[in-house]
Amino acid sequence: MSTKRTFSVGEELAGPVRGITNERIEWYDSAMLSACMNELRQVGSNIHTDEAFARQEGFSGINADGMIMTNWCSEMLVREFGLDYIERGELRTKFIKPVNFNVLLHVKARVKEANRSASGGMEYVLDVWCEDEHGTKLVDGDAKVAAAA
């Protein structure tokens, strides 16, 4: 008998709750460049790190790279579904509003569908989103995970 946790329709999952800081923005952008080049790199000027440049491009100030929030959503799915998500999962995120410096971000998900598969596992469909401390949705998305039996 499987000891895997199962999820019910309507169940809410809570991911990280983290503030958007200059350091976190720099960590992601530098790490992404480092991963690309297989050596440590430091991010330069862009709309995520340079206030003047961000304003010149039409933003109200520096804003977080959307992939920071996507990674925090993914972290929640890795924690809840493990290899089932890493090997067979699907995640979509839409960056519907700029996520500005100093916002406190809450990563959340809700199980929308939970169906038994022919192989005896579970197939989940989830709404996934990030909201600020006032409950305003800044990132919207969904996910699918086929959990093996």
């Binding site: 960590w27 992601y28 480092s34 991963a35 050596e39 920071i68 990674n71």
Partner: peptide, 12 residues
Amino acid sequence: FMCSEYAHGTEE
């Protein structure tokens, strides 16, 4: 390094 550094950059 690529995997660990990318994960590290997002606190994963």
